[in-house]
């Protein structure tokens, strides 16, 4: 469903993402892990067509993000780090607008909006003005806008960042529900996080990056088989090879 091939992003002299390759099969839920500044957001922005890669490319649902950008963008539901909301709009109007610009045919819009509202438990907030909602509800509206057009691929950038523990649990349950095997339209998901418990409960696989390079790509089972915890692995991978990292940063 998602094929990433040697994707790189360079900001001036800094290599933010360095020849990253991985693939995600249909229906898989992959946790994208790494310390802050590892290049998670940059990678997601390249996959969603917001930023162009400096090098390499990726396929989303069979569409190349460079050659067939619009088709690739149509196949993606994306929740950026800060949910992209218009504070002055009502929830249902906002979702209808997002459905429209994401090419949902006019006839199907009402139904899709209602379904997204239902799935994200926003029913009693549907006619509220977004700016008046709590942070947790805003995040839900953010997820609703990512799924409103039933995209085959979901890309969620830190969907639980900045929420209180109850809200985190709610959002986590929501994502688990969206990706459970019996959901009608099961989606392929990449979600970034640095909350390891979250990744362990929701994701089947982990791709870990540090300083723009892939350090781990394995299923949760494989990683925790020999009794080691994900936390220990994360700590080791994020701290390792600092000298090596310094070298990789200098772009020749």
């Amino acid at each position: 469903m998602i094929e990433v091939e040697d994707l790189s992003k360079r900001y001036g002299d800094v290599l933010a993402v360095d020849a990253l390759s991985f693939s995600v099969a249909r229906g898989e839920v992959v946790g994208f892990l790494g310390p802050n500044g590892a290049g998670k957001t940059t990678t997601m922005r390249m996959l969603t067509g917001f930023l162009p890669p400096s090098d390499g490319t990726a396929q989303i649902a069979g569409h190349d993000i460079l050659e067939d950008s619009r088709a690739a963008r149509r196949a993606v539901g994306y929740l950026p780090e800060t949910p992209p909301l218009y504070p002055e709009m009502r929830v249902e109007d906002y979702l209808a607008y997002v459905a429209a610009i994401r090419d949902v045919p006019r006839r199907a819009r009402d139904e899709k909006v209602s379904r997204a509202i239902e799935r994200c438990a926003l029913k009693e907030k549907r006619s509220h003005v977004i700016g008046t909602l709590s942070k947790g509800f805003k995040q839900r509206v953010g997820i609703a806008q990512a799924i409103v057009h039933d995209p085959p691929v979901l890309i969620l950038d830190e969907p639980t960042a900045g929420l209180d523990p109850n809200q985190i649990r709610e959002i986590r349950d929501l994502i688990a529900e969206l990706t459970s095997a019996d959901a009608e339209a099961r989606q392929t998901v990449i979600l970034s996080s640095h909350i390891l418990a979250e990744v362990r409960t929701i994701c089947g696989r982990v791709v870990m990056i540090n300083e723009g390079r892939k350090t781990v790509d394995a299923s949760i089972e494989e990683l925790t088989r020999d009794g080691q915890s994900l936390e220990a692995l994360f700590a080791r991978q994020s701290a390792s090879d600092l000298g090596d990292v310094a070298v990789s940063r200098e772009v020749s």
Partner: peptide
């Protein structure tokens, strides 16, 4: 400032739209 720039540019809208 809303961050909706990211929504617009990652949707299938063209720049002319």
């Amino acid at each position: 400032n809303n961050g909706t720039e990211e929504l617009l540019l990652t949707s299938p809208l063209t720049s002319w739209d």
